[in-house]
Design a protein around this nucleic acid. Sequence first.
DNA 1: GGTATCGTTCTTGTCTGACCACTTTGTCGG
DNA 2: CCGACAAAGTGGTCAGACAAGAACGATACC
Lengths: 234, 234
Amino acid sequence: MDQKAAKISVTQRAIEQIKAMIAEGELRAGQRLPTERDLSADLGLSRSSMREAIRALTAMGVLEARHGAGVYVTQLAPSDLLETFGVVAEISRGATLVELLQIRRILEPAATSMAAARVTDAQLAVIHTHLEEMAASEQIEEFVAADLAFHRDVVAAAGNATLAAIIDGLSTRTFRARVWRGQKEKGVLSQMHLEHVRIYRALAARDPEAASAAAAVHVGEVENWLRENIADFE
Amino acid sequence: MDQKAAKISVTQRAIEQIKAMIAEGELRAGQRLPTERDLSADLGLSRSSMREAIRALTAMGVLEARHGAGVYVTQLAPSDLLETFGVVAEISRGATLVELLQIRRILEPAATSMAAARVTDAQLAVIHTHLEEMAASEQIEEFVAADLAFHRDVVAAAGNATLAAIIDGLSTRTFRARVWRGQKEKGVLSQMHLEHVRIYRALAARDPEAASAAAAVHVGEVENWLRENIADFE
DNA sequence: GGTATCGTTCTTGTCTGACCACTTTGTCGG
DNA sequence: CCGACAAAGTGGTCAGACAAGAACGATACC
């Protein structure tokens, strides 16, 4: 009877109990949990094990522990829960990096298209400043920072916070730096800048089709470069 | 100087150190780590704190602890690292659920399109069995299970494991949504079955455009239904 | 000689209790 | 009224101990 009785650790059980409490609405976003000592007593385990459970949920972006002040449920916003998504991009290498960029080539054109249909003049102005920052940058770090901000603000204008969080996680800062360094050697920075300008123009024209195409070309270029230089990322 | 000196916990530092070791290639996929006692001694902290660090990385799918046998680095495959992605879908509600489905409406057509271009006859045969299972199912649960298997195998045929893992995470929470939908409106089952058949036909015809369109229609239907019944998911 | 079994030893899992670091709160004195 | 200080509460860290499971080797049996 019930042979598969997968022996589960008390810590794992506590993790799922707390997760369930949140899923059921028993614990709401921003709410404070009982103290570690009380919680461990209630769920019938030691404080050490309870702390491990809390640490695991903290790593997942579900809980947030404030030293001396208590443990709280995060806002459960996509940006909270998908923070760990960036870890995938950080520790992935080789073929998986190509897969990640392939996904970005699917998502970013869609997001840029959505942005073209609903971007405000104010957002457009901010995006334009990043273009100027890129043109004025001399250090590769400045360029990367402006590039990152450009894409982030474009995607944010699409109005889907979850989508923005995922795309954000797909390309870490260090990864971009490595790519741009490689691109610089080949002297195609001006080409990349032109691609950014095309994206901006499509947004300014409120043209979703053109925006999608421009974004696809841009990400596709990076993807192709990565495929050729995949050996450096093994 | 360095006023922002964000006091970081020893546990958090250990987490980042281990993560860095993996990112730098010092620790490789599948490799065994030193024992908890040795690790805590090397990094200069107590075993309790080290255990919390390991637990956090375990929750992220980076490490795997085997009782009595040691701690190992996972294969670092997308399916390992993106397991926590499903948590987002599990505990999200309301507007975020719509956002998640919106993302699936972007990804799944793209994946289905890719699958149409490279699906093998063997894969196609397996996918077809799920169609028959759906047609033969009498219980809602059977239908949903076959539906999940259908989509999973279609996406898997796209050949991008990372993409498959993400879409898989997006689908977990819609499990219940589909059940409810079937319970409320019994007539839609045949409609949904027809949508699946359209996807299959496009795959069999190796027609990426048709596959993309069929998948978009299918996911779009679910999305529309969710928007109308969003009140039930708050 | 080969193999199965048992026991030792190593490693993770859990518990307990203590103390430290930080936050919050309330009280006291100006 | 308010600022400073003291006290209580809470998470962070540490140390040591024992339980539970796994791996390995020795031993006994066939």
